[in-house]
Simulated assay, not measured.
Amino acid sequence: MLKSSVAALVLCAALPASLQPAAAEGRGYNGTWSVQLVTESGMCDSRYSVSLAIADGDVRVASTGEGGATVSGRIGPDGHVGLTVRHGATSGAASGRLQANSGSGTWNVSSLCSGRWTAQRRTARVAQAD
């Protein structure tokens, strides 16, 4: 059970978003992004992948199977990333920066594990949420 919760947090912790409150900023990062996470310390699996969708600075998980984790944050107009992820009593965070078609940064899941993420833009369009 703990391993599946950690996996859900690690997958979602890579989702780029920043805590800046500006309304429709981050439009230049709209699209679907493929995110790869590498664990550098702790008890998490060595690698994770997740697909995410960004629309006007808002981020949502585009792939399924993230185990019910909730994500909050936004993409800043300059591409800076800051995100909070929660799954039950466990929380995680990610930070870094996006550029036009790629990005990178760091992530951690409480004191359980931490590492680096990289992202590649796959498409410049995002489907509307249901």
Rank of each mutant, 00 (worst) to 15 (best):
C12K: 05
W117F: 13
Q128L: 10
R27Y: 03
R121P: 02
T90V: 09
G88A: 02
R97F: 03
G57R: 03
G88S: 02
P77T: 04
A7K: 08
G65P: 02
C44I: 06
A22W: 05
V38Q: 14
S91K: 00
A13L: 06
M1R: 06
R74D: 02
S51G: 11
S111H: 07
G96Q: 00
K3W: 10
M1D: 10
C113V: 00
P21W: 01
D45W: 04
L37Q: 10
G92P: 03
A13S: 15
G68Y: 06
S51A: 09
P77D: 14
A127I: 08
S110C: 05
L52Y: 14
R122A: 15
S46H: 05
T32N: 08
T32M: 11
M43R: 08
V81K: 00
A89C: 01
A69R: 01
R121E: 05
V61E: 09
E25A: 15
V10H: 05
S110R: 06
E40Y: 03
W33D: 09
R86L: 07
V126G: 01
E25L: 04
D58T: 13
L112D: 04
A7M: 02
T64I: 10
R74G: 03
A93G: 11
L2Y: 06
L2P: 00
L83W: 00
L98M: 07
R27H: 12
R74A: 07
V50Q: 14
V59D: 07
R122T: 13
